[in-house]
Design a protein around this nucleic acid. Structure first.
Lengths: 344, 344
DNA sequence: CTGTTAGCGCCTTCAT
DNA sequence: ATGAAGGCGCTAACAG
């Protein structure tokens, strides 16, 4: 049997209450007594039973997820995953709220963070926008002891506790290598389609992509970035114009959302043979991958991200360490051959 | 507050003990009483607090992992992950034992399963070999109420509760598409290198690979399969002979282990330009991917597999449902651009 | 500063 | 067939 608080109390010759005070380093214990208890803890190799502690505390973790609103399949999928986590919240001792904000709007996001702060949760998960007012709002949360995890898009300069998302530079590089190798000797330029250079994940994907193209496929010309605001309608117009302007186009790297528009434009123009690498598995992108309009899909698993964010927030909320390997979100590479059967 | 056993007892007008008997459908409750309690449970929407139950029961899950012995980096990595889980076992209420068996030996495996049976664990995880005596041994475990999860290689005809591993047909197809597209118009045949056709994962990868090559790259000739028994020394000899026999070889799909030998053979022959797709991220394969001898690596995350197997075994051991989406093991596709920094 | 006591939600004797 | 009481490992009042 592993040792319990009773064993420590006996070994140190003190009461349960004192052991508890030391364990949770609460004040009101003489230096000397504290030492005795700590020695007992060490010598018996005690590890506290977190589930028993939670039971006694009747603790429940209040968490807030701040998610961009709008008509973006990936973000809606992310929301679905959060709602599924809410359904499990009884068993996991969590109370989760969702706070929607307009997309790509730093000010609105900062306000939402302030609102979240007011509600005094144990932790906040946020799809970040890389802007000073956001960084500030995050710092204020942290200063108040509220755990913060960035989700999907990071805020590296800030004091956030953790980032639950993929390495976007690596994702961009992967896209570059795939498009370069798939094209082989085929001639023609490659275009890049982004959502907005405001969010860090898009900037980083672009950076990774460009560096691989420069290092390994230097002779291939890369057209200037097009920003579609992740809006399918807008994207369709932009891509239609693009392929008129560059009929010799060989490939497109779509590093944001709005792939519905991209696919529509290519199919209407009868240009499904263009090599396309896109991000995020949605019902639309899945169909396009199967039909061959999209050649490969890079994906981040929204379910993993949400579950990981929750685990990390809970752990941080009571100062526990995190199992790093388990929290790394991988870049899924999907060809039509290895699509999961699941919902997405 | 969510309802507790007390609330149910009150609502049903019975004692805690009776509620408990109904909850764990133990005998000794009149039909009528049972109904009353069940109505109360339903009307209050009661869900039992599993952590409290485990605390009261002082339960600990005894699990056995049966792993192939021998000098195979992937399997040794798997073992490392099991050992890490053992280190966490205090917190997770598990007691894990490892049972090593000779690789590719159905009889030895069946014996090990019998030995595991004798120890009466709550669950067994096993790297399966597709043979009747193994299927039988698994059935005997299940008949005795012991949960069984196959790990890495499945046993579909059997009564195992779950398979913690990847979809190997999809993996083979993915390898086929990658090699086909990477090669483009380059001429020359493609070879396939396997461990043993005895294990199902290798057979399935081959099947997936061949079907894609037939469907999408029909003009490319595929050489007969070479079996290297996952043994680096043997593999090196076989591959050296192979490239002498077929100097025009364009690609190799290595669907088993022993990649150290493959890489050595190619590098000694100065044939690093051959397009190679291999399985499993190990220190050797990682180095070869970075140096360019291997072009892409398909991987299954051993850590995920082990953690998933443990979660499923625990859930099955007390008849709980499993969160399917969380337990799906994905096929990682690694290029040199998206290698994780981690240990492997 | 330290100890006593009564729970958290559930399970398990042991009576009745 | 049913109930009362005590305990799992920990925490939280409240005394002293």
């Amino acid at each position: 049997m592993r040792p319990t608080v009773h064993d420590i109390a006996a070994e140190a010759g003190v009461s349960l209450a004192t052991v508890d005070r030391v364990l949770n380093n609460r004040p009101g214990v003489r230096e000397l007594t504290r030492d005795k208890v700590e020695r007992a803890i060490a010598s018996l190799g005690y590890v506290r039973d977190v589930t028993a502690a939670n039971l006694a505390k009747g603790r429940s973790y209040k968490l807030i997820f701040i998610l961009p609103a709008g008509d973006n399949s990936f973000m809606r999928g992310l929301e679905t995953e959060v709602r599924e986590a809410m359904a499990r919240s009884a068993a996991e001792r969590t109370e989760i709220d969702i706070l929607p904000v307009p997309a790509f709007d730093p000010q609105a996001l900062a306000k939402a963070l302030a609102e979240a702060h007011r509600r005094r949760p144990a932790g906040v998960a946020v799809v970040a926008i890389d802007a000073p007012e956001v960084t500030d709002a995050v710092r204020r949360l942290r200063d108040d002891g509220i755990a913060v995890v960035t989700l999907v898009s990071d805020l590296p300069g800030s004091s956030r506790d953790h980032f639950a998302g993929i390495d976007n530079i690596a994702a961009g590089r992967t896209a570059g290598t795939l498009i370069g190798r798939f094209l082989g000797d085929r001639l023609g330029p490659v275009a890049v389609l982004a959502g907005s250079m405001l969010v860090r994940d898009h900037r980083e994907r672009l950076e990774g992509f460009r560096s691989v193209m420069r290092e390994s496929f230097g002779s291939r010309s890369i057209l200037p970035v097009i920003e579609g605001q992740d809006d399918p309608v807008r994207v369709e117009k932009l891509v239609t114009a693009l392929i008129e302007r560059h009929p010799d186009i060989a490939g497109i790297y779509s590093l944001g959302a709005g792939n519905r528009g991209l696919v529509a434009a290519l199919e209407k123009a009868g240009r499904a043979e263009v090599c396309v690498i896109a991000h995020e598995l949605t019902p639309y992108s899945r169909a396009a991958l199967l039909s061959g309009t999209i050649d490969a899909l890079l994906n981040q698993d929204a379910g993993h991200e949400v579950r990981s964010a929750i685990r990390v927030l809970k752990a941080r909320a009571d100062g526990l360490p995190v199992l790093q390997a388990q929290e790394r979100i991988r870049i899924d590479v999907f060809l039509k051959d290895n699509l999961p059967n699941g919902q997405a």
